[in-house]
Amino acid sequence: MEVRTIKVFTTVDNINLHTQVVDMSMTYGQQFGPTYLDGADVTKIKPHNSHEGKTFYVLPNDDTLRVEAFEYYHTTDPSFLGRYMSALNHTKKWKYPQVNGLTSIKWADNNCYLATALLTLQQIELKFNPPALQDAYYRARAGEAANFCALILAYCNKTVGELGDVRETMSYLFQHANLDSCKRVLNVVCKTCGQQQTTLKGVEAVMYMGTLSYEQFKKGVQIPCTCGKQATKYLVQQESPFVMMSAPPAQYELKHGTFTCASEYTGNYQCGHYKHITSKETLYCIDGALLTKSSEYKGPITDVFYKENSYTTTIK
Rank of each mutant, 00 (worst) to 15 (best):
Y284D: 07
H48A: 15
G82S: 13
D287T: 01
Q197E: 04
P300W: 12
N147Q: 14
K183A: 05
L179K: 03
E144D: 07
D41M: 06
N309G: 12
G257Y: 04
Q122H: 08
A117D: 04
K219P: 01
V160M: 04
T313L: 14
T260I: 10
G288T: 07
A132H: 08
H48F: 10
E281T: 02
Q197M: 10
E168M: 04
K127R: 09
P97D: 04
Y84K: 02
F32P: 03
N129W: 09
R66T: 11
Q123F: 02
Y306R: 05
N100T: 13
T64G: 12
D109V: 03
A69R: 01
N49P: 01
G101W: 01
T278I: 10
R66V: 14
T232E: 09
M26K: 15
T292M: 11
E253Y: 13
Y234L: 07
K183F: 07
I286S: 07
C227M: 01
S279T: 07
N49G: 05
K106S: 09
T313I: 10
Y84M: 04
H176T: 02
K158N: 04
M244Q: 04
H90S: 12
V188H: 13
V243Q: 08
A247E: 04
G33E: 01
K183L: 10
C149I: 08
V12E: 04
L283N: 10
Y73S: 00
S295A: 14
S50A: 10
D38A: 12
Y73V: 02
T302K: 04
T313N: 13
F128I: 01
L151H: 01
E264R: 06
G267I: 12
F70R: 11
N157F: 08
Y137L: 05
K298F: 11
T226N: 11
P60N: 09
P241M: 08
P224F: 12
T75M: 09
E144N: 13
D77G: 01
N157C: 10
P300S: 14
V22D: 03
E2G: 11
F9V: 12
T198Q: 15
Y137W: 04
L121Q: 01
V160R: 03
G257H: 00
A154Q: 00
L179Y: 04
F70S: 14
S181F: 10
S86M: 15
D303V: 08
Q216K: 11
Q230V: 13
Y172T: 15
V8D: 01
K44N: 10
L121H: 01
L254M: 10
N157R: 13
V22S: 06
Y155E: 01
Y274W: 13
L200N: 09
V42Q: 08
Q216Y: 08
T103W: 12
E2H: 05
L179H: 12
E144Q: 13
L88Q: 00
A115G: 02
V160Q: 00
L163T: 09
Y208M: 07
Q216V: 06
Y155N: 06
S213W: 02
H256D: 04
Y155F: 04
A132V: 02
L163Q: 13
H276L: 04
Q30H: 13
A154F: 03
D287Q: 10
Y284T: 06
S79T: 13
V243C: 09
G39N: 05
A231Y: 03
D23H: 09
L186H: 15
D109E: 11
T55A: 11
T19D: 14
Q238D: 04
Q197K: 15
T312R: 12
E264H: 07
L254A: 02
Y72S: 11
T76V: 10
I315S: 13
A205D: 05
K191A: 14
D13R: 00
V185K: 08
C285Q: 15
S171M: 15
I152A: 15
C285W: 06
F56S: 00
M1I: 05
F56G: 00
N147D: 05
Y208N: 09
G272P: 11
K95F: 14
K46F: 14
K46A: 08
R66G: 12
K191S: 12
R4I: 14
Y28T: 01
N309L: 13
V3G: 12
L291P: 09
V203P: 11
Q31Y: 07
F174C: 08
P248C: 15
T43P: 05
Y36M: 03
H176N: 09
I277M: 07
Q30M: 06
A136I: 02
S104N: 01
R4L: 09
K219N: 13
Y297H: 11
K307Q: 12
I301L: 06
L17D: 01
K280E: 15
R184L: 09
K229L: 10
K229M: 07
Q216W: 03
E308G: 08
C225G: 02
K316H: 10
K54Y: 14
S240N: 06
T192I: 08
I277C: 05
F148T: 03
Q216G: 05
M170R: 00
N147Y: 12
T282V: 11
D180T: 07
Q197H: 08
I301G: 04
R167W: 15
T282M: 09
N157Y: 02
N129F: 05
Q20S: 13
E296V: 14
T159A: 04
T226L: 10
A150V: 01
T55G: 02
L59K: 12
I223W: 12
D62E: 14
R184N: 08
E71P: 01
E68I: 04
F305G: 04
F242P: 09
F242M: 07
T199W: 13
V206G: 04
M170E: 00
F9G: 05
E308L: 14
I277P: 05
Y84T: 05
Y57M: 06
V203D: 04
S279A: 12
Q222P: 11
M245V: 04
Y73G: 02
D13C: 01
Q134R: 11
A289S: 05
S104L: 05
F242I: 07
A150S: 01
E125V: 06
R66M: 09
A250G: 09
A140C: 09
K54C: 10
N89H: 08
A87K: 05
E2T: 10
D38K: 14
T169P: 05
Q238M: 03
P78K: 15
S310G: 11
T192V: 10
G39K: 01
V3P: 14
F56W: 00
S240G: 10
P249F: 03
H74R: 10
F80Y: 04
T232N: 05
H176D: 02
V166A: 13
Y208R: 02
E296H: 13
V188C: 07
H256G: 06
S50R: 07
T232F: 06
S295E: 13
I45Y: 10
G210S: 07
S213L: 07
Y234M: 07
N178W: 06
S246H: 07
N268H: 03
A231D: 02
Q122C: 03
T192K: 13
V166M: 11
T260P: 09
I124K: 03
Y137E: 00
V22F: 03
T232H: 04
T159I: 08
V67Y: 13
H74G: 14
H48M: 09
N129S: 09
I286M: 06
Q251F: 10
R141L: 12
A231F: 02
G228V: 08
T192R: 14
K316E: 14
N100A: 11
L163E: 10
H273I: 08
G202P: 03
Y297S: 04
Y234K: 10
F242G: 00
N111E: 01
K307Y: 10
N157S: 08
V166S: 03
L114P: 01
V243W: 02
F305Q: 07
C182M: 07
P131D: 00
V304A: 06
F148I: 02
F242R: 05
D165W: 08
A177R: 06
D41E: 15
L283Q: 02
L126S: 02
Y96Q: 04
P224G: 08
D62Q: 14
T27I: 11
E296R: 13
H276P: 07
I301A: 05
G164N: 00
V206A: 07
Q175P: 04
V22M: 10
Y57S: 03
D77C: 09
Y284W: 13
M244T: 05
M170D: 01
K275C: 06
L290A: 10
S294R: 13
S240P: 03
V42L: 10
T120M: 08
G101D: 03
H51R: 01
Y284A: 06
V3M: 15
F217H: 08
E168Q: 04
A250D: 07
E52A: 11
L283W: 06
L153F: 07
L163G: 14
Y265G: 05
D41T: 15
R83H: 06
C112M: 12
